[in-house]
């Protein structure tokens, strides 16, 4: 097998809160291949966005510590200088953000914002840049591209602005695309168009894509592989069909049970006990999900939970999945451990 496009090994990203550092990403290893969409799922505070920002070192350096290896095309970029990172950002690695309404500079015309990334990474004349920008706008499905070029962000709808953000991300044909909740702020019909667009990018550019989302429906539609994160760690990773057909980790199973489905009607939704603790209070020892499934006996958890291979490409953290069963919020509802 060829080397992965992106190989993250034992990454730990810690943020400074008051005077101490707390790991928001804690010992994460992940591979992303060319022509592959890897989804990272979890609730807010699980570390998925921190992981995405760590890859290109987008965090404020003064309040962040990073350990571990991130190799991109076989080069370590975890310890790259800001100049080296600036050469990767926007050219080899493109990023798409959650809120298209705030992601564009309100005082710059659309054309200028796309051209900036072309100017930084390619040798092009002014005319060539403009031509390429209009092409890009058309590529992401923006009608009247020549006019939109001269418009300001506030003149466009949310869906159109997200297309502009995508145009910026793909302007220099990146080989890795990181999309952080790209459709969360959009209506469902616009969402499906944007997802189509991202899928098309993968098919045409064969890029590797990291898709960060909390929406399991989006994961099911888009991903080739799925990593589920909880409290800064990956708790389960599997090919997409395997994950939905045969989820193992208690957190994955709980998440799947708590989403209201548009396709069939459940009487009650499953509620995960407790809350995700704030970063300084994250449990750092033993199984991190333990406190939210207190009816599972202590001895089935591992002291130092490791990833266990349970199928081809399917890994689960901690042994507690073997003995996990649901218990309803009022204690009576048992969904059974299938």
């Amino acid at each position: 097998m060829t080397d992965p496009l992106l190989h993250i090994q034992r990454l730990r990203t810690s943020f400074k809160i008051k005077d101490d550092y707390y790991a928001a990403v804690d010992d994460v290893s992940l591979e992303v291949n060319k022509n592959e969409i890897v989804a990272i799922v979890g609730e807010s505070g699980c570390g998925k966005s921190a992981l995405a920002a760590s890859i290109t070192g987008l965090h404020n350096k003064e309040r962040t510590k990073m350990d571990g290896r991130i190799s991109f095309k076989n080069k370590d970029i975890a310890n790259a200088s800001i100049n080296q990172l600036n050469q990767l950002r926007g050219s080899e690695i493109g990023m798409i953000f959650q809120d298209p309404l705030t992601a564009l500079n309100p005082l710059m015309i659309i054309g200028e914002q796309i051209e900036e990334t072309l100017m930084l990474h390619q040798k092009m004349s002014r005319q060539e840049r403009k031509k390429r920008t209009v092409e890009l706008l058309k590529e992401v499905g923006i009608p009247r591209a020549e006019q939109i070029y001269y418009q300001y962000p506030h003149q466009l709808s949310g869906g159109m602005r997200q297309r502009v953000v995508i145009a910026i991300a793909i302007a220099n044909n990146p080989s890795l695309l990181i999309a952080d909740e790209p459709t969360t702020a959009l209506d469902v019909t616009i969402q499906s168009q944007i997802l189509d667009l991202i899928r098309k990018l993968k098919d045409e550019m064969h890029a590797g894509i990291i898709l960060i989302t909390h929406d399991l429906g989006v994961v099911a539609e888009m991903a080739d592989r799925v990593a589920v994160m909880y409290a800064g760690q990956i708790v389960e990773i599997a090919p997409v069909i395997e994950l939905f057909d045969n989820p193992k980790h208690p957190y994955t199973r709980s998440l799947l049970q708590s989403v209201p489905s548009a396709f069939d009607k459940q009487e009650r939704l499953y509620v995960i006990q407790g809350v995700v603790p704030p970063l300084p209070n994250l449990p750092r020892e033993g199984c991190r999900f333990k406190s939210r499934i207190p009816w599972i006996p202590e001895e089935v958890h591992e002291k130092e939970p490791k990833m266990h291979e349970v199928g081809p490409g399917h890994f689960v953290r901690c042994t507690c999945y073997e003995d996990f069963h649901f218990i309803g919020e009022d204690g009576g509802m048992n969904h059974g451990a299938s």
């Binding site: 469902v188 969402q191 099911a220 069909i241 396709f263």
Partner: peptide, 26 residues
């Protein structure tokens, strides 16, 4: 609710319902 999801009649409703991501990757 059942009718809207299982038997939508207006083209906009159909469009909306079909846009919902399906939770089954298959």
């Amino acid at each position: 609710a059942k009718e809207i999801y299982e038997n939508p009649q207006h083209i906009y409703t159909k469009r909306l319902i079909s846009s919902i991501p399906d939770i089954d990757p298959k």
